[in-house]
Amino acid sequence: MVSLQDIATINPKSDPLQNTFIYIDLEAVEKGELRKIQEIMREEAPSRAQRVIDNNDILFQCVRPYQKNNYIHRILNTSNQQWVASTGYAQIRTTELPNYIYHLLNTDEFNRKVMVRCTGSSYPAINSEDLATIHLYYTPDKKEQLKISRLLDLLDKRIATQNKIIEKLQSLIKGIAQHCIKESTSGNTYVKLGDICQITTGKLDAN
């Protein structure tokens, strides 16, 4: 058992911001996937845009961490494009296998320890100093780390692929429904919703 700060540097010193950079805010990541990429100018950047990240850095969501919208930066920066994360994330740089540590931080056991240290009710949050002191079990065997992380990476990729298929099917359903309704409007009659449906208040009977 070790504390997170024993195997990683939390919020390492950042390089100065470039004139333009790609910004990762708290809305950009969903369940490990980077869903939004936005390039912004330094003059227009929010005050939270401070954490300059390198490849294999882990971003841990400090605000509402139960959502587990954490991210490991795996994009090779071949064009010297700077990537910057919000201070709503804790930036974690580890000497261990990054993918393995990333999966450890997403476990329910680690998340429970995080939530105990959170403050606030509507938007529970943990600060980086408290996050660094959380203890976790891990194997120092690099071969074992690689085996575990490869398996979990494959499962994550499978889940991501299935989610994309589901999103495409949902979009297809909406498109077909809109088209069918639009094509069948001629000769239709306008009615009140209450004429064709039974609408309840949703309140339970006190008895």
Rank of each mutant, 00 (worst) to 15 (best):
Y100P: 01
R150E: 14
S184P: 01
Q61D: 02
N19C: 01
T107E: 08
A8R: 03
K36D: 05
L154N: 15
K113M: 05
N69P: 00
Q61I: 12
S86M: 05
A85N: 05
Y66E: 11
L4Q: 05
S79P: 00
Y100T: 00
I126N: 04
M41S: 13
Y23R: 06
Q178I: 09
Y137C: 03
H179Y: 10
I7V: 15
K168Q: 14
Y23M: 08
G88N: 06
I148Q: 08
N80P: 01
S184H: 11
K182C: 03
V116S: 03
S149W: 08
S47D: 00
L76S: 11
T185G: 00
K13H: 10
K13C: 03
N55W: 00
A85C: 09
I176E: 08
E129C: 04
L204S: 15
I159K: 15
D6G: 08
T107G: 08
A49C: 04
C62F: 02
S128L: 02
K203F: 11
A206N: 13
Q145Y: 03
P124D: 03
Q91R: 13
L76R: 10
Q82Y: 08
Q61C: 13
Y138P: 02
E39D: 01
T9M: 09
T94M: 12
K68H: 07
N127M: 10
S86D: 03
I166A: 14
R117F: 04
K157C: 07
H73L: 00
R35S: 08
G202F: 09
V191N: 01
M115D: 04
Q198Y: 15
K164N: 14
L105A: 07
V114A: 03
D130N: 14
E27L: 06
E96N: 09
N80Y: 07
T87V: 12
L131C: 09
P46E: 01
H135V: 07
I134Q: 06
K68E: 06
N80K: 14
I181E: 06
I37G: 02
Q61V: 11
L151V: 13
S14H: 05
Q145A: 01
I58Q: 04
R158I: 12
L169Y: 12
D141C: 04
T95Y: 11
R158F: 10
V63D: 01
N127R: 11
I58E: 01
R42S: 08
Q198T: 15
Y23V: 09
V29Y: 03
N106V: 06
K147P: 00
K174G: 02
Y102R: 06
T201R: 13
I53M: 04
G187M: 10
Y100V: 00
L193V: 13
Q81I: 15
E96S: 12
Q91Y: 02
L193N: 01
Y100N: 02
